[in-house]
Design a protein around this nucleic acid. Structure first.
Lengths: 241, 241
DNA sequence: CAGCCAATGATGAAATTGTAACAGAATTTT
DNA sequence: AAAATTCTGTTACAATTTCATCATTGGCTG
């Protein structure tokens, strides 16, 4: 009986893995038990499931709990990041190929891209790619390689070589630290080669970040401010050259 | 006026970007309007928001709406696929590097991998990668390139070149068609180069699929049955050489 | 400024959801 | 095999959500 129960719980987890959200009634049908039993199963496994007004979802998708280690950073300054992206969006034109950097800033830009914008997006991060995958009207090119949970991004030579085959019009880079004299830095060294190569190849580069990054310096340096056309923050755009 | 409204909608989207889910009441407080107005805003933007029993969440995380076109296929034969994966799992040993093919079959295997299994997983599909990203104990290598929504996978030369840098012990391939005389086929031609190169490089290859695929033939041929150590289905493993 | 219109708020009835209590099944223990 | 225990389904009722309706507000136009 503990068998039956755990089997049901597993089946429910499976179903949720595919549907993301399930109404209690529907779950009861699928599992061929009463609604009440489903409710009890859910209540007994708060670690796995979560109730939300008649619907069941996986607990993991709860507030802030992204599968990445980015979780914490993601929520901070989110509206500032969004605002910065809104400003950055002006630089994207029809037909462009753009590079979106890893981090939690530029994911917001994906949702702002107008429908049928006819843009190709190059990225190297799972969180960005996940959003892009929801947009069949956008062509996505992913730079693969070894996965780094800390940034939800990939690194490696073949990914860098992919860039040789691309013509990037606009590169939108993010940074964890921006110092006007020293330049742009990030937290992890594996990000550096991709950023630098993109900077070298793209027609125009912009640094996109919320203002909390200004004055900060992180361990991995990747570009002087002169590498960028502008710095774009929630307050708008400013020349840096 | 329409200004006020769209501003509210944007603010709501922002708030949801941070919280993922918001109770109507809480949203009403945040936006400083009545609950009813929030409800109306949500109802007027079904493309952006979704109601879930008193809670608001961003659309796109909606039921059944996987971001991939795989949606339909995903549910069919799901338990057969899971069973097949359970059998396939026996071939994975500590320290192995394994290749997981694209499709809806082998995603199930990811969750079955024991914790701290010390395995490296090579993949080329978003749906597989998404699950792997939730597993910090697994090393993931992604073959990047151009994204194909039809299979949620990537293709391209640099991805293929990544394979040259890897030593794959076990390759688990899936197929949309299995014909014992003709061999294994899949639905999309862009999958073929990756599959073939993996088959060429891996120490051992197994074909993993539910039995509904047997006797079926799809347009893109990628390997004769002799390429595989065995065929693994929900009924277990069978030699094919 | 009267009048119109859209937007918002308030109210309450209807529908849905959450939960406790009990009774019947299934399973395990004695 | 009987008893005890756990699990499940049913029912009833409380709490909450949903929605239609109408009153009120605020802005705009003539």
């Amino acid at each position: 009986m503990a068998d039956r129960k755990s089997q049901r719980v597993a089946a429910l987890a499976d179903a949720l893995g595919e549907h993301r959200v399930l109404h209690v009634r529907r779950a009861a049908e699928l599992l061929k038990v009463s609604e009440m039993t489903v409710r009890r199963d859910v209540a007994n496994n708060p670690a796995s499931f979560q109730f939300l007004g008649g619907h069941i979802m996986l607990a993991g998708e709860r507030e802030g709990e992204a599968p990445y280690e980015l979780g914490l950073a993601a929520n901070q300054h989110a509206s500032a990041k969004r605002a910065a992206c809104r400003h950055a969006l002006k630089h994207v034109a029809r037909g462009d190929t753009i590079y979106l950097d890893c981090g939690t800033t530029l994911v917001h830009l994906v949702e702002m891209l107008p429908e049928n914008a006819d843009v190709s997006v190059v990225c190297c991060a799972m969180n960005v790619a996940e959003r892009l995958a929801r947009r069949p009207d956008i062509r996505m090119i992913m730079l693969g390689g070894l996965y780094h949970p800390s940034t939800a991004s990939f690194s490696g030579n073949p990914g860098l070589e992919t860039l040789d085959q691309l013509g990037i019009n606009i590169a939108l880079l993010s940074a964890a630290g921006i110092d006007f004299t020293r330049g742009a830095t990030c937290a992890h060294f594996h990000e550096v080669p991709v950023k630098q190569k993109v900077i070298g190849l793209a027609q125009r580069c912009h640094l996109v970040a919320d203002r909390s990054k200004i004055g900060v310096q992180k361990p991995a340096f990747f570009a002087p401010m002169s590498a960028f056309q502008s710095l774009i923050t929630e307050e708008g755009e400013q020349r840096v050259k």
